[in-house]
Amino acid sequence: GPIILQSYRVIADYEKNSKSELSVKDGDVVDVVEKTENGWWFCQMKNKRGWVPAAYLEPLDSPDESEEQDPNYEGELHITTKDFTGEMEDELDVKEGETVEVIHKLLDGWWVVRRGSVTGYFPAMYLQKSGDAV
């Protein structure tokens, strides 16, 4: 049967930084073709297609309804796959190969992560579930 795509409204202007991305404007409506846990969603708008940060999109039909998973305060063990230095105060600095606990997997691709007694945001893109093959 036909594939029904979910429509989302763009909530802030986004200027693309690479060829595979899509520039969108506040108020645009896009259809989401694929969602990745990294927070990049593949969208189409009229005849254009490309990746858009999920943080810039809200569901067209139910803007107030949260699609987020619940946090898991016990934490899920992950290994970092890249050195990362946060640019904002609430982001965590972690070297490659460290074990961290993922507490909240947010759709925008910035997960809440705990390392020892410190908690902060970390890019899902640089995390691999502990025990998963590379």
């Binding site: 943080a55 925008d108 890019p123």
Partner: peptide
Amino acid sequence: TIKRPPQNPPPRPPPEVRRKQV
């Protein structure tokens, strides 16, 4: 076919959006 997503983390939500989410 769908191209691979960008290899960098997506930007954090812009400040005006973050305010809306709170």
